[in-house]
């Protein structure tokens, strides 16, 4: 039971990352590696602000803003300086490593016994005793749900339409008298804002910031997106945001199972990578089989 709760908690936090990665990878067709830096960025800002006694909700807003700013940097590097998409992300990611260390002041910043979204006066009083073990999970679920609903709403606005159009066919955006570069930058900002939000929630859940925590974020995000989209391809009713959230939980479950059955935590990233490769190959296999049938 504890393991299930843990999988759901982690899976839902990574669902927020998956929604961000969905925007760049699926909608914009932009493999954005900045997320490896913006995820710990959200955590670093949150941990630092919470440690100095600032309201955790404010800290989360600051994390979101910082994530958007980092996305803006990647976007400007790519659009204005015409650096290739993959490299633009790598540049931001690398720079953020130092930025994160500067913000937190050290490689590891614990925030035990502080006020977080999971541990504060309001939450501690409204949750009845029998819900206590699920308190963290419920709060994470609410944050993820809010992110999902906001993103669903945005993709149905005029601005959201253009975002979908720019990944689909940039020529259409140009003929609609809009700058495709600007739209891409907006997409990168939203994506990285979501990822930083996930970092903020994660650092409050595990109660510390650690500078290495971002390594492999993009791989987990991509895995979640690919699992979700592949699984729900036939079900048009299921929104992609829901699909990638389910993908994220399934992915976390796979990793948790692999570790329960003998693999040590040291092998975590190795398991992550191999699982991702498997998912990629299976998704490609299914696609090619469908092509043959068609």
């Amino acid at each position: 039971m504890d393991m299930l709760i843990s999988i759901l908690e982690q899976g839902l936090i990574f669902a927020i990352i998956a929604m961000g990665v969905y925007i760049t990878y699926k909608i914009l067709d932009f493999p954005d590696l900045s997320v490896d830096g913006t995820y710990p960025l959200g955590a670093a800002i949150t941990a630092t602000m919470i440690a100095s006694g600032i309201n955790p909700l404010l800290a989360m807003l600051a994390a979101i803003a910082a994530g958007a700013a980092a996305g803006l940097v990647t976007g400007l590097i790519h659009v204005k300086l015409k650096v290739r998409d993959l490299l633009s992300g790598i540049i931001t990611m690398t720079a953020l490593y130092s930025v994160n260390l500067h913000i937190a002041g050290k490689a590891n910043l614990p925030i035990f016994n502080t006020t977080t979204i999971f541990n504060n006066g309001i939450v501690n009083t409204i949750f009845p005793a029998f819900l206590e073990p699920y308190k963290t999970l419920i709060i994470i679920f609410l944050v993820a749900l809010a992110a999902k609903l906001l993103l669903d709403w945005y993709l149905k606005t005029k601005s959201g339409y253009l975002l979908r159009a720019v990944g689909d066919n940039p020529a259409v955006v140009t003929s609609l008298a809009n700058d495709k570069g600007t739209i891409k930058i907006i997409g990168l900002m939203i994506s990285n804002a979501l990822v930083a939000l996930a970092g903020s929630v994660m650092c409050q859940q595990q109660r510390f910031f650690e500078v290495q925590m971002g390594i492999g974020t993009i791989v987990i995000g991509l895995a979640a997106v690919i699992i979700g989209i592949t699984l729900f391809r036939k079900l048009r009713r299921v929104k992609p945001t829901t699909a990638v959230a389910v993908g994220s939980i399934l992915y976390k479950a796979c990793v948790a199972l692999a570790i329960t059955y003998g693999l040590s935590a040291t092998d975590m990233k190795l398991v992550t990578a191999v699982l991702f490769l498997l998912i990629l190959v299976i998704a490609m296999e299914r696609r090619s089989r469908r092509k043959k049938l068609a």
Partner: peptide, 22 residues
């Protein structure tokens, strides 16, 4: 995107693409 979504975008050319319904 659907025919309706494509036409909605085309119909909005020259106006701001803001946060109102697409």
């Amino acid at each position: 995107m659907t025919i309706l979504e494509n036409l909605s975008m085309a119909d909005n050319k020259g106006k701001p693409f803001n946060l109102t319904p697409g």
